[in-house]
């Protein structure tokens, strides 16, 4: 089994395409960190005045009754933290690479897209090149060959996610210094209380949780690749699901049954910012729903792959 996984990794990393993706991710991570650095000029008015100045727009937003629920709750959260900060005299952290990593966590979507590209091709590529025939006539059950491919896809996803974290952290450390890894900042707990938490730990938690939706997209792309045998088609479908999913979050607030779909459960940053899509949804619920989909899709992949006639 280990030999099969080594083979699948060889087929991923001995391709020029893969290295383009890896280099691109590094470039994007470094670029985002540099952009962030340029954008956030340290003001001279001091953090207290700055925080007070930031409160005003959020209060205005709350007065507007037409804004959507998500934006309203976000404003409430920001106000809560800002007021707490002023009342208890907690200055914001000035240089923490982990904080930038959290702020730029939207880049995880890049990891998802790049991983979709690899996972979409890993099975269908064997079909389109005809190599599936020579691959399957070896003394291994098809299930093992498929499992090796899945594991290699998951390894690639993990590598990408780790690379994003590492490169962003390192870039910011170079630009701004390492800061204090024990630095804390104010966050909202699941119950909505303001708490001081270690920033690095929060960043690691965010990335750790984001691994679950990343796995979901790996699994969607992998299943599409296995069932449809066309990498272009499965990249298309996976990206479509990803994009449509983001726009379904608002609908999920209205319809309870939609919380059982994978879409509203795919953004873990919402939980860390105390913005659950529905009040009856928790991290545990979302992780559970996603794992259920991952398991179901994998059952479909296995079934189709094992039963299929390899002809033509």
């Amino acid at each position: 089994m280990l030999r099969l996984i080594i083979n699948e990794n060889m087929k991923i990393y001995r391709r020029f395409r893969t290295w383009i993706l890896l280099v691109l991710l590094v470039v994007i991570s470094v670029g985002a960190s540099v952009a962030y650095k340029i954008e956030t000029q340290h003001s001279t008015i001091g953090w207290r005045s700055e925080t007070r100045a930031a409160i005003q727009p959020y209060e205005n937003r709350l007065k507007d009754t037409s804004i959507n629920e998500m934006l309203r709750r976000e404003a409430q959260n920001k106000l809560k933290i800002a007021r707490y900060r002023l009342k208890h005299d907690v200055p914001p952290v000035s240089n923490s690479p982990a904080e930038v990593v959290m702020t730029d966590s939207g880049l995880i979507e890049t990891v998802i897209i790049f991983t979709i590209i690899i996972a979409s091709d890993i099975v269908s590529g064997e079909f389109s090149s005809g190599t599936i025939k020579l691959l399957l006539i070896r003394p291994y059950r098809r299930l093992k060959i498929l499992a090796a491919k899945y594991i290699a896809s998951v390894q690639f996803a993990t590598l990408m996610l780790g690379l994003l974290f590492f490169v962003e952290y390192a870039t910011n450390a170079v630009l701004d210094g390492f800061g204090n890894i024990h630095a804390t900042d104010l966050f909202l707990s699941a119950q909505g209380a303001v708490v001081q938490q270690n920033i690095l730990a929060q960043a690691v938690k965010l990335f750790g949780l984001s691994f679950v939706p990343l796995m979901l997209y790996v699994t969607i792309a992998f299943a599409a690749s296995t069932v449809l045998r066309s990498s272009a088609f499965s990249i298309g479908i996976s990206l479509f699901i990803m994009l449509i999913g983001n726009s379904l979050v608002n609908l999920t607030m209205k319809f309870e049954w939609m919380k059982y779909l994978p879409f509203a459960n795919s953004d873990m940053t919402l939980y860390l910012n105390h913005l659950p899509v529905r009040s009856d949804m928790t991290i545990g619920f979302s992780v559970g729903v996603l794992i259920a989909y991952i398991v179901m899709l994998n059952i479909v992949s296995c079934f189709v792959f094992v039963k299929r006639d390899i002809a033509g």
């Binding site: 001995r14 090149s129 005809g130 025939k133 006539i137």
Partner: peptide, 16 residues
């Protein structure tokens, strides 16, 4: 299958 060696249809290999 353990002691079978085969080419099926075309000798399709990993081109890269």
């Amino acid at each position: 299958i353990g002691r079978v060696g085969a080419i099926v249809e075309n000798p399709d290999m990993y081109r890269y």
